[in-house]
Design a protein around this nucleic acid. Structure first.
Lengths: 347, 347
DNA sequence: GTGAAAGCGCTAACAC
DNA sequence: GTGTTAGCGCTTTCAC
C-alpha cells in the first residue's frame, strides 16, 4: 500500500523530491484538493465553511486536511479578502510612555492569546492625543485587520475613519461607530468611597487619573457626588496612573490638607506609590491614613498592607474587545463589566 | 497653494474620485510606480531596499510613497516571500496558566511594539512541556514568521524543527540552532545571596523556580555554591514563580527550619507572596526574616518594605529577541544581560 | 453541487 | 539600471 503522505510535497509526484527535502513543504490548499479528489474551489468552500458542498466532498476534504496537517495561510487569505493580518492595540496618551503601563501589556498579552488561533497577531502602538493622523494611518494600512482602542478620548472617537467601521472596539468609552467594552467605573468608585466612609473616614482625598481620560472621569464624578451628598470636603489632586506620580500626589495631599484621613487612588499603582511615600514620611497605613486603589492588579492582594481596591476583569474585557473586532459580528454598543469592591487591609 | 494631500487616493489623479469616495482605497505599489513614472519592480526595489536603482528613480519613488501615504501590504509581501505574518511567543510550561504571568504579558507587549513598524503582529501560545508537537506545528504553519521561546527546556531545544532555523530565538537557554537572550542569573543570584550574608544573615533559605526550568537552575546553583563555601546550611523549597506558591513555600520554610533568618525567592512575585504570608504569621520583614526577590518588577520599588532584588532589563531582552528573529540576521549564539543587585529595604 | 478562471499586492528571476 | 513576467496561496464570481 502506498503511504498516505506520498502525494505531498510537489505537483510532480516524484517521490525523490520528498526524500531529498527533509523539510517537507507545508501542505497547501492545492495539496488538500488533490488528495481529496476535488477542485480547489470545493476544498476552499469546505474549509472556510462558506458556500455549499456535498456531505461526501465535505468528509473527504476534512480527512485530507487532517491527514496533511493543513493550515490555511493567513497571508494569502488576507490578501485575497482585502483583510488585514494584525490587530492593533492603539493606546492614547500624551506621550509614548503610556505603553509602559503593565495594564497595557496585560491587554496586549490577552489579545495575543485571542489572535493565535486565528493565525493573526497583535501590534502595539501609541496614539498621540493630538492629531488624528495616527488613526487615519491605521485605517489606511491594509495590514491592519482591526483596532482595539485603549484610553480613548472623544476627539479620537469623533475622528474615527469610516474605513475602520465594523472592525474597531474600545476598552473605555465608545460611540455609535465604536462598541465600548468598559468597566462600570462609577459604581466601583462609589463602592470604594462608600467603604471609606463606612469605616469612619471623613476627610477623603482622591488622586485622579489623567484629566483627558473620560472614563477615568466617571470615578471622579462618583467621588464628588458622594462627598457632596455626605457634606464632606472635595480634595482632588491629578495623577496619571503611575506609582511615581501617586507618591508625589499623596505628599501634595498631605501638605495641602494635613488632616486627610483617607486617599482614594484612581489606580492600584497610584495607591502603591502613595503608600510608599506615606511610609517614607512615617505615616501609617491604614492607621493614620487609609489608602484604596482601583483595578486589583495581580499584586494588590500580596502588597503590604493588602490593598483595598475595586476589582476589574481586565483579561475578560480585553478578550471580549479583541474577539469582537476579530469576529466582526455586530455587537451591542456597550458591554459593561462590573467594578467590585474588594475590602482588604489598606482601607 | 495646493494641499499636499490633494494627490492622495488614486493614480488617476481625478479629484472627483477622491471626493466621491469617502473611503479612499489605500495606495498600492502600482499606484506608486505609476505616480513615480517607473515600473513596479523599480518601485519595489527602492521600497524594499533590495537591488539597485538610480538616485533619480529612488527620489521619485520616495516622493510618490510620501505623497500617496503608501504602506506596503504585509500580507502580499509575506505571501510572495513565503514568509509568515506573525511572531509567536511560545511559553513552555506544565499547563496553560503559565500565560497568566505578568512577565509573559510584558514580553508579549514588548514584542508587539517591535512588530508594529514591521507590519507584523505577535501571537501568544502555551507550549506543553511534554510532546514536541506544538513546536513542529509552529514550524509548519506558514503564517508564522518566527518564534520567541520563553522558559525553554533542553528537550524543546533538541526537538527544534529544521524549518524554524534562523527564525527562532530564546529568552533563556539556547542551543547551536537557537540564539539565547538571557540574564546572567548566576551572577545575580550570587550578588543577592552575598548581600544577605554581608548583612549578617546566616540561615538563608531559597524558594526556587520550577524544577524543569534550566535557567532558573543557575540561581539555585549559585545559592548552593555560596552556602557551601561559607559553610552555611542549604535550605531549598520548590516554587513556581507565583505569589501564591511563594506564600506557601515561606510557611513551609519556617516550619521545617524555624530559625531561618532570610529567604531568597526566585522571583519578585514569590517574594511578595512570602512577605505577605510571613506578615500573616506576625513575622516582621526584614526585622525577623529578610526577604529578597529576583526580577525587579515594576512594583518592587513601591512595595512595603521596598523589595531588595536583582534587576533585569526584561524589556530590552524581549526587544532584542524579537528583533533578532524579525531581522533574521545572524546573531551571536548567546547575548547575556546583566542581573544587578538592588538593595532596598526588605533585605 | 462543482470546477475553471481571475485576480488580491507584492517580489524575484530574467531579459533588455 | 530598468522593465517584463511569472507566480506566492487563497477566495470568489460565474458557468456548467
Amino acid at each position: 500500500m502506498m503511504p498516505e503522505w506520498a502525494g505531498r510535497g510537489g505537483a510532480t509526484g516524484r517521490l525523490e523530491d520528498d526524500m531529498s527535502t527533509p523539510t517537507t513543504r507545508p501542505a497547501t490548499l492545492d495539496d488538500v484538493a488533490r488528495a481529496a479528489g476535488v477542485s480547489r474551489s470545493t476544498a476552499s468552500r469546505v474549509i472556510a465553511r462558506t458556500g455549499f458542498a456535498s456531505p461526501a466532498a465535505r468528509d473527504r476534504v476534512a480527512a485530507a486536511v487532517d491527514r496533511l496537517g493543513y493550515v490555511p495561510n493567513p497571508a494569502a487569505r488576507a490578501l485575497v479578502r482585502g483583510a488585514g493580518v494584525r490587530l492593533v492595540i492603539a493606546v492614547s496618551g500624551t506621550d509614548a510612555t503610556v505603553l509602559d503601563d503593565p495594564y497595557v501589556d496585560r491587554v496586549a498579552g490577552t489579545a495575543a492569546r485571542v489572535c493565535a488561533p486565528h493565525g493573526l497577531g497583535v501590534a502595539l502602538e501609541w496614539l498621540p492625543l493630538r492629531g488624528p493622523t495616527g488613526l487615519r494611518r491605521l485605517g489606511e494600512d491594509r495590514g491592519v485587520c482591526g483596532v482595539v482602542l485603549v484610553n480613548t478620548t472623544q476627539p479620537v472617537l469623533d475622528a474615527m475613519p469610516a474605513g475602520l467601521r465594523g472592525r474597531v472596539a474600545s476598552i473605555g468609552i465608545g460611540s455609535v461607530a465604536v462598541p465600548s467594552f468598559d468597566v462600570d467605573n462609577g459604581a466601583g468608585a462609589d463602592a470604594v468611597v462608600r467603604h471609606l466612609c463606612d469605616t469612619g473616614r471623613r476627610r477623603i482625598a482622591m488622586v485622579t487619573g489623567p484629566r483627558w481620560l473620560t472614563c477615568a472621569g466617571r470615578s471622579v464624578a462618583a467621588y464628588r457626588a458622594l462627598m457632596r451628598a455626605a457634606g464632606l470636603p472635595v480634595r482632588l489632586v491629578a495623577g496619571d496612573f503611575t506609582a511615581a506620580r501617586g507618591g508625589r500626589a499623596a505628599l501634595e495631599v498631605l501638605s495641602r490638607w494635613p488632616d486627610t484621613d483617607a486617599i482614594f487612588a484612581a489606580s492600584d499603582a497610584t495607591a502603591l506609590g502613595a503608600i510608599s511615600a506615606l511610609r517614607g514620611r512615617g505615616i501609617r497605613v491604614p492607621g493614620d491614613v487609609a489608602v484604596a486603589g482601583f483595578d486589583d492588579i495581580p499584586y494588590a492582594a500580596v502588597s503590604t498592607p493588602a490593598l483595598t481596591t475595586a476589582t476589574h476583569p481586565v483579561r475578560r474585557i480585553a478578550e471580549a474587545a479583541a474577539t469582537a473586532v476579530l469576529d466582526g459580528r455586530r455587537v451591542p454598543p456597550v458591554t459593561a463589566f462590573p467594578s467590585t469592591l474588594v475590602a482588604r487591609d489598606s482601607a
